[in-house]
Write a protein that binds this DNA or RNA. Structure first.
Length: 877
RNA sequence: GGGAGUUUAGCUCAGUUGGUUCAGAGCACCUGCCUUACAAGCAGGGGGUCACUAGUUCGAACCUAGUAACUCCCA
């Protein structure tokens, strides 16, 4: 059967993924073996696969497949999170396109639409992961709003509340007026923008005097409740204890003093609007100021503003500027660059807003999580992120966990008779019970209770993920949880180190008393060549599934990993998957070569083959050892590159070329058998990186039974090896390269045999490799000689001299020039070494070993010069 | 404004306790080859003041200080 010379991955990948699924090779159940477990960073249920997912999941699959081949009971739990804000926005938009307004629906009706949407679109991303080859235990697929996971969320909320760690409070939150919800600090993206700084005059009460402040947000002066000056600022001392009048609305406000005010900035006077600025809010508390909130939740002005009521904040700003100008309150307008916060989800400008929210106290529960990373119980790779983690955990702030949305876990708080008095319970029935006890009113019914309208932050469910996917909150004694938890590795990006990783660690220690995972591997962000983050809006991201179609999943996986050292961003170009594809093709053709060889039982194993086998065994073992070490250090790019070079350079370019029989000649049995064994090992080493092609070739390499798979074979172990053989062979490679160079320079085709004469020295000659040398260089004659040769091209390896007699095409001038060039080089080298050795301080202070090495370098170089000079003399004769 | 990190070849990155196995790898590039496994290939080759400056040391890509540029986090 003819095997095509180009490897085409499409059908092959589909075939093997089906085979793996049908045979349930990805599934795991607890047994007596040691386990290895990863819970996937749950992608957003609204999401589609992007380059970041490709990198993230490739890494996880490599680790999982390798662990599986190391004999561990391997479990990779997939799933998605419900993404409150993003999903709700999607569903709202979808309904809008159908002419339905969210406001016209009841909560139940809306949720039913949301669930329909989830059922229809929620699994897309997981199916896409299958194309990548992800070997997840799909039977365990979890969703943060599944029954067990939801119950866990409610349960821990109640537990934390009972521990006094949850409180309700007025706080300045990042308000998203479009999504009508508070968002966390981490969900606000700040962008630098050109804006204006307005200088606005306030009249001093009872005096014909003015005070000027500078602000970027003139509309908020409607909520002003003070003017603040710095007590050290002599320009304003005379205004101390006076009052100012807010323009247009004539509210009288005090002039207060605080060193917080930056004298250099603007006019040195600050307007204080406690309801709409976080720093002003702090000032307000400190100076006991009134707080006037002038905005509705949707960003329009309310009654408190007195004017422009009902107008949107941006419109109101324009009106405000216009009106102030008309009334001569604006003295100056300057250009100004400031940072404006946008909602990561809805892209609306964030409005700082005072609001009643639920908070989780963090400081106390963060402590064990901080300690765990500091004392190394949990390891972060790369280590530099430990600092970042530490800094954050030491300055941790309380976590606002409520969101003004419907899609998510509804806060299990029930208010009694529309008051602020409440009870917390898993269900309405329990809430009634508790409320009756609390109020001492047995006639209280469900009618008297109103559940909090808000849901919990999505992270408040994903922080339980490694626990809740095994139902460890609800049933801590269940066998799955006991077996798989704590999980082993967590693979994610540093961007969510804080709001996911750190919180998972906190939750792990707080709810289970154990870490949630042992190692955290942080990979970078995928960027384009201009180092811009890949995103839909920039249009700079390739479509992952198209990449897979074009280069094969194996090719893409290799491309993603080749250039992605831990913690570094990955700069993507199409060259990367191409390199992966080319490598797959190389493997494919190596297989084609071997599969075409016929065995002849009669022929003896040639010495060159026997020697090459002996050498390759050493190289293989050495590289396995290196790869193991790289995996230990989570240096996956290096591990892959080592395997890549082992296959391409050592196996294909050197080993196969040496043992390759002449065209259409048969091969001996032992060599072929050994070669198949090598190939088999290489495939296993490469399988975690390139699952599909390795399965395909492995299945073809030898007769396999139904139900067999490379993915359940044992990973080759590193055995003892003789490094001397590798070193000798490296020298041999250099010698062969020298001879190839001579052929190229002198234009001698490979098929013309040449002869080689060797004047052996103490080093640089290996007779046991002669048969390989002869075959690789097509030598008709290999002779050991006592004397230097004339009419030859020569070169030195250590102190052994090699001569290629080429009577017809020797240019004596050229040869001498070449030899002189070498002499010059060594001369310079000697000068440098001598300078060192003549330095008394060096001889006195440097270790013996270093000095000896220098002396050897010196004498070696001197010998070389001597030998080269001699060669020149001989040629000249 | 506070903190962390980065700077090594055209690009992306390695360089473990300072010492010719220290200046490396892959890709890209150049030259010659369609040599029956592979042109998605083979063989060979060029390329770096290790950001800059000063210091410590017999010796610095590596240690110290300063400077510059970039990145991230927090405010």
């Amino acid at each position: 059967m003819e095997i095509p010379s180009k490897y085409s991955p499409q059908e092959i990948e589909e075939k093997w993924y089906l085979y793996w699924m049908e045979n349930k090779f990805f599934n795991s159940i607890p047994d007596e073996r040691q386990k290895y477990c990863i819970s996937i960073p749950p992608p957003n249920v609204t999401g589609v696969l992007h380059m970041g997912h490709m990198l993230n999941n490739t890494i996880q699959d490599v680790l999982i497949r390798r662990a599986r081949m190391l004999g561990l009971n391997t479990c990779w739990v997939p799933g998605t999170d419900h993404a409150s804000i993003a999903t709700e926005a999607k569903v709202v938009n979808k309904l809008k396109s159908e002419g339905i307004n969210k406001a016209d629906l009841s909560r139940e009706e809306f949720l039913s639409h949301a669930w329909q949407w989830k059922e229809k679109h929620g699994g897309i991303i997981l199916d896409q992961l299958k194309k990548l080859g992800a070997s997840c235990d799909w039977d365990r697929t979890a969703f943060t709003m599944d029954k067990n996971l939801s119950d866990s969320v409610i349960k821990v909320f109640i537990e934390l509340a009972n521990q006094g760690l949850i409180y309700r409070g007025i706080r300045m939150v990042n308000w998203d007026p479009k999504a009508m919800t508070a968002v966390s600090d981490e969900e606000v993206v700040y962008k630098e923008e050109q804006s204006k700084l307005y200088y606005i005059k306030y009249k001093i009460e009872g005096q014909d005097d003015w005070i000027t402040i500078a602000t970027t947000r003139p509309e908020t002066i409607l909520g002003d409740t003070a003017i603040c000056i710095n007590p050290n600022d002599t320009r304003y001392t005379h205004l101390k204890d006076k009052k100012a009048i807010v323009p247009l609305i004539n509210r009288v406000i005090p002039i207060i003093e605080d060193e917080y005010v930056d004298i250099q900035f603007g006019t040195g006077c600050l307007k204080v609007t406690p309801a709409h600025d976080i720093n002003d809010y702090a000032l307000g508390i400190k100076h006991n100021l009134q707080t006037i909130d002038i905005f509705q939740d949707n960003g329009t002005l309310n009654e408190n503003a007195q004017i422009f009521v009902g107008m949107d904040r941006f419109e109101a700003k324009e009106m405000m500027i216009k009106t102030l100008q008309e009334n001569q309150y604006i003295s100056k307008i300057e250009d100004y660059t400031n940072k404006i916060g946008y909602s990561e989800r809805s892209f609306a400008v964030i409005e700082p807003k005072l609001s009643l929210q639920w908070f989780l106290k963090m400081q106390e529960i963060a402590q064990p999580a901080l300690n765990a990373v500091i004392n190394g119980e949990i390891k972060i790779y790369p280590e530099k992120y430990v600092n970042t983690y530490k800094h954050w955990m030491e300055n941790v702030k309380d976590w606002c966990i409520s969101r003004q949305l419907w899609w998510g876990h509804r806060i299990p708080v029930y208010y009694i008779n529309q008051t602020n008095e409440y009870v917390i319970a898993e269900t309405l029935e329990k809430a009634v019970q508790i409320a009756r006890e609390k109020t001492n009113n047995q006639s209280l019914t469900a009618e008297n209770l109103t559940q909090d309208q808000d849901v919990l932050d999505t992270w408040f469910s994903s922080w339980l993920w490694p626990i809740s996917v095994f139902n460890g909150i609800n049933e801590p004694e269940n066998p799955d949880y006991k077996y798989y938890y704590p999980t082993d590795d967590l693979i994610t990006a540093p961007e969510i180190l804080f709001f996911w990783v750190a919180r998972m660690i906190i939750a792990g220690y707080h709810f289970t008393g154990h870490k949630p995972f042992t190692n955290v591997y942080l990979h970078g962000i995928v960027r384009d060549l201009k180092h811009r983050k890949m995103s839909k809006s920039l249009g700079n991201s390739p479509e992952p599934l198209e990449l897979i179609a074009q280069y094969g999943a194996d090719g893409v996986r290799v491309g993603m990993l080749l250039c992605s050292p831990a913690g570094n961003d990955m700069i993507y170009t199409d060259d990367l998957p191409m390199q992966g594809r080319n490598f797959a093709n190389k493997m494919w053709n190596a297989f084609r070569l071997i599969s075409g060889w016929e065995i002849d039982q009669e022929i003896e194993q040639p010495i060159y083959a026997k020697t090459a086998i002996q050498w390759f065994e050493q190289v293989l073992n050495k590289n396995i050892e290196n790869i193991n070490q790289y995996f230990k250090e989570y240096r996956l790019s290096d591990a892959l590159m080592t395997a890549y070079k082992l296959f391409w350079d050592e196996f294909a370019s050197w080993y196969l070329e040496i043992i390759k029989p002449q065209y259409q000649k048969p091969i001996d049995k032992i060599t072929l058998q050994k070669t198949v064994v090598f190939f088999d090992k290489l495939l296993k080493i490469l399988h975690p990186f390139m699952p599909f092609i390795t399965e395909e070739i492995w299945q073809l390499l030898e007769k396999r039974n139904q139900g067999e798979t490379i993915m359940l074979q044992n990973m080759p172990k590193s055995e003892e090896y003789d490094n001397d053989i590798i070193v000798c062979f490296d020298e041999l490679k250099q010698i062969i390269t020298e001879i190839r160079k001579i052929r190229q320079e002198k234009n001698i085709p490979n098929k013309d045999a040449i002869s080689l004469k060797i004047k052996t020295g103490k080093e640089g000659y290996f007779d046991f490799l002669n048969s390989i040398l002869a075959k690789s260089c097509n030598l008709c004659n290999l002779e050991i000689v006592e004397d230097k040769q004339t009419m030859s091209v020569s070169f030195l390896n250590k102190d052994t001299e090699y001569f290629v007699p080429l009577e017809n095409c020797i240019n004596i001038e050229e040869e001498i020039a070449k030899l002189n060039k070498d002499i010059d080089y060594f001369q310079g080298f000697i000068t440098a070494v001598q300078r060192k050795l003549e330095n008394e301080k060096f001889v006195k202070n440097a270790p013996e070993k270093v000095i000896d090495a220098e002396r050897k370098k010196l004498s070696d170089a001197q010998n070389k010069i001597f030998s080269l000079q001699e060669q020149i003399n001989i040629i000249k004769k």
